[in-house]
Design a protein around this nucleic acid. Sequence first.
RNA 1: GGGCGGUUAGCUCAGUUGGUUAGAGCGCCUGCCUUACAAGCAGGAAGUCGGGGGUUCGAGUCCCUCACUGCCCACCA
Length: 944
Amino acid sequence: MPHDLPKAYDPTAIEDQWAEYWVRENLFAQPTPAPGEPEQGEPFTILLPPPNVTGRLHMGHMLNQTEMDILTRWRRMSGRRALWLPGTDHAGIATQMMVERQLTEEGTSRQQLGREAFVARVWEWKRHYGGAILDQMKRLGASVDWQREYFTMDENLSVAVREAFVRLYEQGLIYRGAYIVNWCPRCQTAISDLEVVHEEQKGHIWEIRYPVVGPDNKDTGEFITVATTRPETMLGDAAVAVQPEDERYLHFHGKKLRLPLVGREIPIILDDWVSRDFGTGAVKVTPAHDPNDFELGKRHHLPSINVMDETAHINTEGGVYAGLDRYVARKRIVADLEAQGLLVAVKDHTSNIGHCDRCKTVVEPRLSKQWFVKIKPLADKAIEAVKDGHIRFTPEMYTKTYLNWMENIYDWCISRQLWWGHRIPAWHCGTCGKITVPAPNMSPDPTACSHCGSDELTQETDVLDTWFSSGLLPVSVFGWPNFTVKKLGAPGLDSETWDGKVDRDDFNAFYPTSLLVTGFDILFFWVARMIMLGIWFAQDIPEADGSPRTLARSVPFKEVYIHALVRDANREKMSKTKGNVIDPIEIVKQYGTDAVRFTLASMASPGTDIAFNIARTEGYRAFANKIWNAARFLFQNVDRAAEIGIAVDRAALGHMPDANQFDRLEDRWIVAELHSASGKVNAALENYRFDDAANVIYQFFWGSFCDWYLEIVKLRLDFSETANKPRIAAALTMLITVFEAALRLLSPFMPFMTEEIWQAVYDGNPPAKSIAVTTYPQAETKPIDTVAQIDMNTVQTVIVETRALRKEIGVEEKATTAIELRIGAGDRGVVEQNRGIVERLAKISEVRFVDQITAGLPLRTRFNLDVAVVYQRTIDIPVERDRLTKDVAKYEKGLAAAERQLGNEAFLKKAPPHVVEGLKKQEAETRLLLEKARAALNALPPEA
RNA sequence: GGGCGGUUAGCUCAGUUGGUUAGAGCGCCUGCCUUACAAGCAGGAAGUCGGGGGUUCGAGUCCCUCACUGCCCACCA
């Protein structure tokens, strides 16, 4: 059967079909192991960081997925029970915004629809468009278990969210109260500290006079000048604070001020928090609109006067300013103050302004009732787990970042005033006003107030922060808390199929997960929350044998690999506004998934940002093409052999070839190279060195296999009349064996092309459904055949030096030439045995072994050999003189350095013996090379 | 205001616990359609490792310092 591979590698012709095949065949499904089932290897579990349902695939995703896919494919092929679990996040704000925008276009709004209809509408949106990013993932060949795909609002995951909430509530770790929170006036919801991005902005600081009121309620004519960056909040001022010892204000202690524009009388309070050096040393206190002022207000029992509504417009508390947007109000207030002569100064001032991470609106600190997690107890466990080494970060420096954040953590505001999300499972009593939360262990909704027994209960309208549910994923995807439900393949609860037994098989098999691969941008949002919540809830789940779970076994993952940012070729952050976003799908269409994956892998050095350079991708497409053509070469020869009745033995395929089976130098050598490469690749992947692994494979395939081995094998592929059939058969068998193993080595990096070629290698009868489920070439435990490597190196040296020499002296490309070779007795035997290789690859007609190179012949010199081309040279003497002069200088410098070192007593005494020995050897070599180079320089004919 | 990175060839980046003459890809120069591949083959040029100081027998690698640059965290009005 002919193997008809097109001449040029065309990724588009093969990739779709394999991507689809892998999904259709459920190739990467990892079923729940039944209890008692013999172990199929140690599990390797990895969770996909769930993209937002609204998401579109960007380069960051592709890097993340490529890394996870390489590791998962590698582990799977290495015998691990690999499970890569995909899903999407409901992404509260992002998704709600998306649908709201649609409604606006339709001339309606979520308010007009009402909550229920709106949520239904979002579900509908999700059903239509929600899977886009996972479809893109499928196309990229991610080897995930699609049967386990989840959505964070699936019923079983919602049960987990509710259970987590009620348990934390019962443990006293969730509370509700009125606090200053970050409020986004556009999204009209509270957001957490993490969702606020600070940005330095130029603004002003206004100095305003507040009149002092005398005992008769009349102005005394004195003033205190306060400084503020936000004059509009003065409408809600409850006091002015000064430092108690500040002599400037001593005589005002105990007096009152009249709040300008409002007329309210407010006290002067004393507090050490006030800094005398900043502004005027007098601070206006607005408890409802500033976190510091809020604390101050609590200490001094001041009223909190909220002057803004949820859209940051002034409310009725603001009197004549009511209804104005906060910035309009600011202008108006400043103007009015000026008119009344109360504005002392306007100074330039730069400050950090908080913006909503999602919509970039300036955040308004706002007093409102919210739900919080008392996070310290969870954080303590999370700190301990990392300090004790149960979770390891790569790169290591993130350990510090993580601990620093954890140790300074603030309570987590988990309530959001949205409609799309997990509604908080708490009920307010219409009679006594208290809160009722269901009991743990999946109790039903309460029907009566737990405090007064009233049945006037209404559920809290707030929903939970998206990260609350994604933070639970490591436990919830494996069935927690409702282990009685088999959920595999069924997106909702299905209690009818429950046999009544606790079923924790998934959890037992796959928790803790092995690894998390993600970007640093969600280190706190997600990674830290998973660690806290994962430990907190997993620690109560006994081990399969009933023994209690240790902290080491409670963590949600044992390793965290943090990858860098993908930037554009100029190291600029990709952003829509800059217009430098590279769409991975576009690049994939152009160069193929394999080439893009390989590019990302080869640049993914831990801790370094990736400047995505299309030139690299072009290079790796060329690499793919190279392998493609090596396959074509192989198949063409297999077919030619078949025509004259030579069958290639495929029996040995699927294993690493054993070097001892071969006696030809090139065979022993390529096997040694393959073993060496596979050892390096395995070691590199073990340490997340995707770049090293990719480079080793590239070098092996191109530098060793194609450049040398294929060229040498051609010697034996002689299909002329005198064809030596057994020799051809042996050569092809060897070739195909090495090639097949190398394909497996490459497979995790370039899954598509290797699949296509691997299937072809087996001529329609592959031993497995896919190369992805074959065995990965493992590091050889036997020592690598270094003798073959050294001998081959000698042969290569002769060839390379001859080629260089021929080029230098201007031998025409096609001409063959004789060489003279001066070489030691041992190496001479190697060259003699492989004379055919040398002759063919260096276009040599005859190798003359000599003791002394004939004077006048152009020669090249190495430590262990001299080679000269027998040819009437047309040498460019100045160029040659230049080259040799440079050589002499280089050797002189090297020799001097070596001699200096070796003459140093301290060096000889202190340096390890192998270093001293190495240097001595180098000194001897350099000395010889220097002598030879000098001689050659002297032998050069004088310039014409 | 704290903290963490980066600076190596024209470009993009590697360089393990200090150890022999610092590497790769792309680009560049020269010559080649050689029984797979011009997305190829062969040969070649190119770096005072950001500056300065120190430790050491020995520094791209460790320490100090300066410069430039990027990022994270932080409630001073």
